[in-house]
Design a protein around this nucleic acid. Sequence first.
RNA 1: GGCCCCGUCGUCCAGCGGCCUAGGACGCCGGCCUUUCACGCCGGUAACGCCAGUUCGAAUCUGGUCGGGGCUACCA
Length: 480
Amino acid sequence: MSVRVRIAPSPTGMLHVGNARSAVFNWLFARHHGGTFIVRVDDTDIARSDEQYVTQMMEAMRWLGLDWDEGVGVGGPHGTYRQSERFDRYREVAEQLIADGAAYRCFCTPEELDDRRQAAQAAGRPPGYDGACRTLGSEQVNTRISAGESFLVRLAIPRPGVTEFFDLVRDDMRFDHDVIDDFVILRSDGTPTYHLASTVDDVDYEITHVARGEDLLSSTPRHILLTQAMGAEPVIYAHLPLLFGPDGKKLSKRHGDTSMDAYMKAGYLPEAMFNYMSLLGWSYDPEVTIYSPEQAIEKFDLADVSKNPAVFDTKKLEWMSGEYMRELAPHDFVARSLPFIEVNRKLSDDERRRFEVIAPLIQERVKVLPEVVEMSEWLFVDDVSFDEASWDKVMKPEAGPVLDDAIIRLEGLTEWSTEAIEGVMRQMLEDLELNPRKGFQPLRVAVTGSMISPPLFESMEVLGQPATVARLRRALARFV
RNA sequence: GGCCCCGUCGUCCAGCGGCCUAGGACGCCGGCCUUUCACGCCGGUAACGCCAGUUCGAAUCUGGUCGGGGCUACCA
């Protein structure tokens, strides 16, 4: 039997990092087994779902390097892969289950339910549905339907009973039916709940393995019972450890960015993001941290996934992004940087050429793409803006003569190359009896505006002689 | 409250009865390199939650305890 797995995000927001991690694991599992990876949209909640999120989620997954064989955006033998277009099918299943006696109509109103739930809790009994409508005879049911009473459909959990299953990451699981109430599968408005829609899809799409967050672990017996009621064979489950924030609580908005979108915009390299995420709950090799998707595919197994929750810590992601950054081919680095540099203004051909020259020196200094902008800004402006902290630190009294002297020497240079500039500047150091720090830092700030910049002489060369001298003059003028 | 899951350095992982005076990576600290910042290199810091039990021997098995988390909707 060929492996068929899916990721089923609900388009009520951007792709959450937790879902992205599930997607990575499912993808890895599918690719390892030469199986099929499916992307389905769980949009039963029509009110909160939005088409733009579907587009953004697909974008985020492609950005991560994931591709899928069936599903939204690519099609396949199972229709649109959107639950919103399968409501008839879910209703059909619900009706069949009623006919089979596996499910029943419930006429209890929300108010009644609420009252009884509170009463039960007050009395120390489980708050779940009490099964009041489970024993209704067919005549009663029919009369109430004809009377126009609204109803919903609940699954009749076999009682007494126990559901046992094997979880690929948690091993043997066992739930007594006492703790599972007759949950709703079809709402009074005829729409399916998550449990129904998701389970029916898994059955219809012939899913073989479901790897999802541990938050669904306690719902699993419901899904198994539903599957069995449909006369189908349950999938094999793997419940992945949850992702936490730095405070050890479930990852949520207040921990900062929880959507993939934010990390794309923050300029992390997708290769790093993929690599990092694959490390959350799994490891490629005790001694190896950086590896390619192909290598991961080769070794990945859901059975090796760790049971404990993982803290999503961007420190390591940042480091990793820097690692991948330095591995980029120079032209690739330029290509990836440009969108960030050109957000406000397109570069001229000349500016672009200069950027390409200095790019390799910037490449080895940044971890995320927006840093490229900071570090190259001085190249694209007429007048650099000075970073005040940098200015104050290096523009000490002895900086005046340095600027003054540098202007004269650089102006007199007939060959404008890094080597020539460095030669004449080092000579200046000797003549002025200054160390590099004292002698060069003022020049750096004068030329790039900041103490943090690419190497000085290369920067001067790319900038050109007139501009370099002009900047030194401007700094000197500001200095006095 | 009930049910369920989890518990190794600050963080992510390795460890599946002796190879562990617990290994790697990030972070952090110190040093080297150096025109800044990075990179790179060298060194260091730091953990088996606790208590019993099983065993010749436990981070590894069992029980308890404490701690953290999840679920408990006509939300997904």
